[in-house]
Each structure stands twice: as structure tokens, then as C-alpha cells.
């Protein structure tokens, strides 16, 4: 058989570090979003959150650079020499950059908060949303349907909330359960949507189900469960952190 090792030549390009990126970008966007939200609502005390948001963005950018096969060609400068509205990654690059600058500026009280906070709010939304956009704009990847556009920001937010609960002893009990529950329900609705989609979508879900169905169910259940542990925020956060990470990774890996 003359079929190039008998396998498909285009091996998946996103793995390893890319998954770490999908984790960090959710965390970063979510943290910035929470920080901006709390500032908008006049609840101060979000300096840590801002710093962490900046840290996560910085880490994410580092990971993106590190995982890029083009890292030593420094072609990444092109990202900031252009803006291409049709490209999710172009949005993401600018969103991440702005989020980094804005959260640092706010954390160190440089510049007018009245302008910076809404801007951060907007840029954090971009960071939260663009990974889902990036995935769902691929016509040949049926697993990444339109639903992913919602699922990715939701799980990103859940990541940030969970991180807040576990590591910053945050006081966001009111926001946490609904975020976790929504993410968990969305995680369960997602396959339901796929199963009612076209043949490609059904096959895509079947592939995921066959190879990692249990992991997927576990991820969704962890998120749902996290929504019920109101009394034990750290446990809830831990469960949600695990659930969201697993969910995002599965979707990225199996969608390719």
C-alpha cells in the first residue's frame, strides 16, 4: 500500500503544551473577568485577582511561545503588526495583550480606573470567548460545533472561580454554585446536541465516547457536584478545577 506509512500524514498539531494553553487561557480570561466584574460592582479587594490574571496571561503567552514550532523564528511579532477580525487567534492575541496591560495597570493603579475597568471587562470577555471561537470555526471538525463557543467561556470562568475558591480563599459563594452548575449542565447538554446533529457530529461524539466516555462523564459530574458543595468552597473549587480542565482537554484533543 502506497499510503505514507499507512496512516494519515497530518498528525494532530495541538497536544501537550497546547492543552496547558487551553487551561491557562481559561484561567486568565476568567480571572480578569472576575476582577473586572468586582470592580464594576464596586467591590474592591480584587488586586490579587488582577495580579493573578496578569500572571496567567503572562504564563499563557510564555506557553504559547514555547509550544510554537516557530518560537525561534520570532514570527510572532506578526500577530501584533496586524489585526485580522476573521481570525480568532488574532482576537486572542490582542485580547491577551490588552488584558495583561490593563490588569497590571489596574493592579498598580496606573491610569483612570473608569476607563480601564470597562476595557478590562471587554478584553477579558475576548480572552474567555476566543478559544471557543477558534474551535467552532472549523468546518471539518464536527465535535467542535457551535455549542463549544458557549462551553469554552463557561468552563473558563469555572476554572477561575474554582481557582479563586481554592487558592485565594475568595468570598464568592454566591457566584460559584451557579457557574459550576451551568457549566456542568452545559457539559451534559453538549453531547445531547451532538447526538441530534448530523452524521459527522454523531460520529465525532461516538469517537469520544468510545475512547474516553468515562472521563467525559466524570468531568461533567465533577462540575455538577461542585455546584452542590456550598459549605466547602475549597472542595467545590477543587472538583470544578479538575472537571473543567478535563472537559476542555477532552474537547480539544478529540475534536482534532
Amino acid at each position: 500500500m502506497t499510503s505514507f506509512y499507512g496512516i494519515h500524514p497530518s498528525a494532530e498539531v495541538w497536544h501537550g503544551l497546547t492543552l496547558l494553553h487551553f487551561f491557562l487561557v481559561g484561567l486568565a480570561g476568567g480571572s480578569a473577568f472576575l476582577a473586572a466584574l468586582s470592580r464594576l460592582r464596586g467591590e474592591g479587594a480584587s488586586r490579587n485577582l488582577l495580579l493573578f490574571a496578569a500572571l496567567f496571561v503572562a504564563l499563557d503567552l510564555a506557553v504559547l511561545w514555547l509550544e510554537s514550532p516557530a518560537r525561534f523564528r520570532f514570527t510572532h511579532v506578526w500577530l501584533f503588526a496586524t489585526f485580522r477580525p476573521a481570525s480568532a487567534i488574532s482576537w486572542g492575541a490582542w485580547g491577551l495583550l490588552l488584558t495583561l496591560l490593563l490588569s497590571l495597570a489596574l493592579a498598580f493603579r496606573k491610569g483612570p480606573e473608569r476607563i480601564l475597568v470597562p476595557l478590562l471587562f471587554a478584553s477579558s470577555l475576548v480572552v474567555l470567548a476566543y478559544p471557543g471561537m477558534l474551535l467552532s470555526e472549523n468546518p471539518g471538525r464536527p465535535l467542535w460545533d457551535g455549542f463549544v463557543t458557549g462551553l469554552m467561556p463557561l468552563t473558563g470562568l469555572a476554572l477561575a472561580v474554582a481557582f479563586w475558591l481554592v487558592f485565594l480563599r475568595g468570598s464568592l459563594p454566591r457566584l460559584a454554585p451557579p457557574v459550576f452548575l451551568t457549566a456542568g449542565v452545559a457539559a451534559l447538554l453538549y453531547p445531547w446536541g451532538l447526538l441530534h446533529g448530523d452524521a459527522g457530529e454523531r460520529a465525532a461524539w461516538a469517537g469520544l465516547w468510545q475512547d474516553a466516555g468515562l472521563f467525559y462523564l466524570a468531568a461533567a459530574l465533577l462540575l455538577l457536584l461542585a455546584g452542590f458543595f456550598r459549605r466547602r468552597p475549597e472542595l467545590a473549587g477543587g472538583l470544578a478545577l479538575l472537571g473543567s480542565t478535563l472537559l476542555r482537554s477532552l474537547i480539544v484533543v478529540f475534536g482534532q
Binding site: 496512516i7 494532530e12 503544551l17
Partner: peptide, 13 residues
Amino acid sequence: LKRRTFIQLAAAT
């Protein structure tokens, strides 16, 4: 063909 199992992937990560 090109999908790796999740386990392998976790290890790779």
C-alpha cells in the same frame, strides 16, 4: 487513526 487515547495524551502532557 490520528486520535490518541486520552491516557497517552495525559502522559504526553
